[in-house]
Nucleic acid binder design. Structure first.
Length: 425
RNA sequence: GGAGAGGUGGCAGAGUGGUUGAAUGCGCCGGUCUCGAAAACCGGUAUGGGCAGAAGCCCAUCGAGGGUUCGAAUCCCUCCCUCUCCGCCA
């Protein structure tokens, strides 16, 4: 959500920010609405003031046994006028406008319209192919008898999977390893939030009202979380925090549910894009002055996981056109998947770390106390990491010629072994 | 699911139709006192918004949204949440 006062004072900057995202100028339309609304508001408030004054007079007159019918008649008039003004939808329209436009981008965000325009920041580890034909995780998982898309489809339809044996256990090992690292080394506090939330929470982080079609909704009007960013960030909705409490660093391991409405036909093979996947999420509630540094730190925390898991990756700075609605700046971490692209390998997103600035905080009314009044906090979120895609990466990078999978040392204690051999079926 | 009670400022807690945006206590901030601190005393202390250059004036908000009324924290309706008892239940 945007700050109307910022737009009043920086209409050109606002339009320029929209232009970077390929959106037509909107400041003039918004300011016209704003002007109209303020004029109406001033008029209404004057009437309300008059009404309040008269009502008090009535009270006084009556208590002295006098006749207050003149005052009462005037209030009746005011009320009809207020009624019509009250029916104006100006405020709602203005609000809808302010909610409708994506966040303004950080100055450092590279220009560009699509994925190809993202800027490569660094490559870590050696992206290599095995010295035998690389299989993808589907071939590996099914070959081991530990991954079954047919059963997923039988139970729930397309884009679901059933894991069993060591692959089911691997999910748990990965998640625990990630949580242990983030909580014990990086100071994130583990949470176990609800997986269903109210619409208000979805609006707070920006999923609603614009992106309802990406979400699953329950019959009693709740929503399944598409990421733990939603419950974790909304923990501070409506709160006024002490500066000393910041930064708040929160993490949670949760399932994520996505309708993938716009993704028909994309990534239909395998576990890359499922309706349900789990993720260890990182959220920071930050002082406005520190959010830029916090984004670097958070990205580093996520990268550390990949380093410990000995997975090659690269970090991209998303270009203007590829940056999400609520974000001011986003780093994508892409992991090397040798089994994709017909065995030639490719990088795929495994984490997305974003600084949302005050964009979500304004929607949620999440503030902090400062010397001169309350200020909006900044919110950040990032995957630390997507568990399903981490599993894919471990399988495809750790695959052996015989179809078994060698795991990195970091996971051995969590798996009680270093190799996944499959299950006699 | 059934029956009942309740949601008031950072917290506790008064307030059941008329200057109540809200007593009182605690907390917090500033001051006096003190070598310093504590105690005591004095003063201040909600949020959002409109108008104004500013001082300031005004509007809204007592869980949320409607309604009754000249006037609502107080009355009515709907919803949300909390608590107690019963039922069911991992």
């Amino acid at each position: 959500m945007h700050d109307i006062r910022f737009i009043r004072e920086n209409a050109d900057a606002f339009d320029a920010a929209l232009a970077r995202r390929g959106i037509a100028p909107a400041a003039a339309k918004i300011l016209a609405l704003d002007k109209e609304w303020r004029a109406l508001q001033a008029e209404m408030q004057e009437d309300q003031h008059r009404r309040n004054v008269l009502s008090k007079e009535v009270g006084k007159i009556k208590s002295e046994g006098g006749d207050a019918s003149a005052q009462m008649a005037e209030v009746a008039e005011l009320k009809t006028r207020l009624e019509t003004h009250n029916n104006s939808d100006l405020a709602a329209r203005l609000d809808a406008e302010l909610m409708n436009y994506p966040n303004m981008l950080d100055a450092h965000v590279p220009d560009g319209e699509e994925e190809a325009d993202n800027a490569l920041l660094r490559e870590v580890g050696e992206a290599r192919l095995p010295d035998f034909p690389a299989k993808d995780h589907v071939a590996l998982g099914e070959g081991l008898g530990l991954m079954d898309f047919g059963l997923g489809a039988k139970l729930a339809g397309a884009r679901f999977v059933v894991l069993r044996g060591d692959l089911a256990k691997l999910e748990r090992a990965i998640a625990t390893f990630m949580l242990d690292t983030h909580t014990q080394e990086f100071g994130y506090v583990e949470h176990l939030p609800p997986f269903l939330v109210r619409g208000a929470a979805m609006a707070g982080t920006g999923q609603l009202p614009k992106f309802a079609e990406d979400l699953f909704q329950t019959t009693d009007d709740r929503w399944l979380i598409p990421t733990a960013e939603v419950p974790l960030t909304n923990l501070v909705a409506g709160e006024i925090l002490d500066a000393a409490e910041l930064p708040m660093r929160l993490t949670a391991y949760t399932p994520c549910f996505r309708a993938e409405a716009g993704a028909a036909g994309r990534d239909t093979r395998g576990m890359i894009r499922q309706h349900q996947f789990s993720k260890v999420e990182l959220v920071s509630i930050s002082h406005p002055d520190q959010s830029a540094d916090e984004l670097e730190r958070m990205t580093n925390c996520a990268e550390t996981i990949l380093q410990r898991l000995e997975l090659p990756y690269r970090v991209m700075h998303l270009c203007a056109g590829d940056t999400g609605f609520s974000a001011r700046s986003t780093y994508d971490i892409e992991v090397w998947l040798p089994g994709q692209n017909d065995g030639k390998g490719m990088y795929r997103e495994i984490s997305s770390c974003s600084n949302c600035g005050d964009f979500q905080a304004r929607r949620m009314r999440a503030r902090l106390k400062t010397a001169d009044g309350n200020a909006l906090v900044h919110t950040l979120n990032g995957s630390g990491l997507a568990v399903g895609r981490t599993m894919i990466a471990l399988m495809e990078n750790g695959q052996q010629a015989d179809g078994s999978i060698v795991l990195p040392k970091a996971l051995h204690p969590y798996m009680g072994g270093g190799r996944i051999e499959g299950m006699a079926s």
